[in-house]
Design a protein around this nucleic acid. Structure first.
Length: 487
RNA sequence: GGUCCCUUCGUCUAGCGGUCUAGGACGUCGCCCUUUCACGGCGAAAACACGGGUUCGAUUCCCGUAGGGAUCACCA
């Protein structure tokens, strides 16, 4: 890469830099979203870097999961993915440069030695920091052949202030910072070094990340200055918390975006909208399209306090997007779930009936799971299973009602919602009962449940034969235990 | 514990000195619509953490207290 990265001429360049130690979790997704939106808003670039320098914890499946999540959410990145580990030589080169210019030095302190130092500091109630024991010591004093790390010779006086785009001006005394390790004793770069070098080489102008990195920013700035490089702008966004107010982490409540998709049945645009509104707002707007988000997004509007994740609200947002989603798309999305529940593959007729019923079905669901289970009764094969409430309703329905309804419907050849509705109302009137008295037993018979979309729409969608057949099944069922009760 | 950050309804937020009897959304409750369940509509309860300042006037500015958060590795 070298110097070519400076050819961006002030254009915005952001990056999302996850470490592939697990799935793309919801907090990471939000960081990616903000980086994506900020870059697009400014007509800049959004880069992706995989921070895989921790060889023990980085895995291929994790990389695949992260990319999968990025694609699902449609966070399209620019250019090639940068794999940090592959750039180790470049990182070492930067460390050497620092060594040559006197901005870094070798430290021969052993792990045991440092542990003892910290124990002492802890006991004395002092902050635990590297005490700079090798900072000005002659390397010749080191035991021969002893392994060494390379540390940054950081400024010890004065202070650094970062004009963070989210947090505002934040100042920390240099005395609070110690000489961080740049290169481990095995010659591999630490995160601090790798991030600074990569961000520089990639031409990153705006570092937008979780505020758990705010403290790192001060040290990284010292490193950047020692290297004589341009300083990026920083924006440290608050972490997402769980409903209990504690930080959402991989071991505490943070789920991978794949879980939201596959298990919870969320739509990507809903997850995106929810994440955007978490910690950021645009007046009273609740539903914000991708296009609007790109037009409106700004870092100054991001709150500084952590926001709690609210599953109920996500469900609600999801329900909104479900209702406005394309029916063909929804059928595809629930097909797998339906097949699993039914234990058989869906055929063309199944998809056809699902699509026709989708406008009614999607008003009743807030996620794909509920949408799929709500659609199941259309696909069942006679005799359809009945849930307990349907069985109870059928058992307690006035004698002869269901049979009478069957008779009324059987007389209809032009099987439309209007005529079915009219026939049912006429029957109810003739019998002197409310429409519900007629409709509910029929609903139970036809859907196997006491709640469903509008009954006459259901009947029309199901068709004459199937509808009458299901009513006959129910009739047969109620006649068996007690004989002779039907009219 | 040191350092840094934060604090408006239960939750996400609007508010950027007077427009605040503090607005919206989710959730909760009630009503309407209605063949069920939803959707939709209407309405209700619900917040400026506390104490000092500054100011003619503070939700809005400053300080303190309390509470919450982040971070202090040869992990990222």
């Amino acid at each position: 890469m070298g110097a070519s990265q400076t050819d961006t001429h002030g254009a915005v360049v952001t990056r999302f830099a996850p470490s592939p130690t697990g799935f793309l979790h919801i907090g990471g997704a939000r960081t990616a979203l903000f980086n994506y939106l900020f870059a697009r808003h400014h007509g800049g670039k959004f880069l992706l870097r995989i921070e895989d320098t921790d060889r023990a914890r980085s895995t291929e499946p994790a990389i695949a999961a992260i990319l999968d999540g990025m694609r699902w959410l449609d966070f399209e990145w620019d250019g090639e993915i940068v794999y940090q580990f592959a750039r180790a030589a470049r990182h070492a080169e930067a460390a050497q440069q620092l060594l040559d210019t006197g901005h870094a030095y070798r430290c021969f302190a052993t792990a045991d030695e440092l542990e003892a130092m910290r124990a002492e500091q802890r006991a004395a109630g002092k902050p635990m920091r590297y005490d700079g024991r090798w900072r000005d010591r002659d390397p010749a004093e080191a035991p021969t052949g002893a392994p060494a790390v390379i540390r940054l010779r950081a400024p010890q006086t004065g202070s650094v202030t970062i004009s963070d785009l989210v947090q505002g001006d934040v100042t920390v005394a240099n005395a609070e910072l110690d000489d961080m390790i740049l290169l481990r004793s095995d010659g591999t770069p630490t995160y601090m070094l790798a991030v600074v070098v990569d961000d520089h080489d990639m031409g990153v102008t705006h570092v937008i990340r979780g505020d758990d990195h705010l403290n790192n920013a001060f040290r990284q700035l010292a490193l950047i200055r020692a290297l004589g490089w341009a300083e990026p702008s920083y924006a440290h966004i608050p972490l997402i918390h769980g409903s209990d107010g504690a930080k959402l982490s991989k071991r505490h409540g943070a789920l991978g975006v794949d879980i939201y998709r596959d298990v919870l049945g969320m739509l990507p645009e809903a997850v995106e909208n929810y994440l955007l509104r978490l910690g950021w707002g645009h007046g009273d707007d609740e539903f914000i399209s991708r296009e609007q988000a790109i037009g409106w997004f700004d870092l100054a509007g991001v709150g500084r306090g952590p926001a709690r994740f609210d599953q109920k609200k996500l469900e609600s947002v999801n329900g909104h997007y479900l209702r406005s989603a394309d029916d063909v798309r929804l059928v595809e999305l629930i097909a797998g779930r339906a097949e699993a529940a039914l234990g058989r593959a869906l055929v063309a007729d199944d998809r056809d009936i699902l699509q026709r019923s989708m406008p009614e079905l999607k008003k009743r669901a807030n996620n794909l799971n509920d949408l799929a289970s709500g659609a199941l009764f259309y696909l069942r094969i006679r005799p359809i299973p009945m849930d307990d409430s349907a069985l109870r309703l059928l058992a307690s329905a006035p004698d002869g009602l269901l049979g009478a309804a069957h008779g009324a419907f059987a007389g209809i050849n032009d099987w439309t919602t209007e005529l079915l509705d009219g026939a049912a109302r006429r029957l109810a009137e003739d019998l002197g009962v409310k429409l519900g008295q007629v409709a509910q037993p029929v609903r139970a018979a036809v859907t196997g449940s006491t709640s469903s979309p509008g009954l006459f729409e259901v009947l029309e969608t199901l068709g004459r034969n199937e509808s009458l057949g299901r009513i006959e099944d129910a009739l047969a069922r109620t006649q068996q235990p007690e004989e002779g009760v039907t009219a």
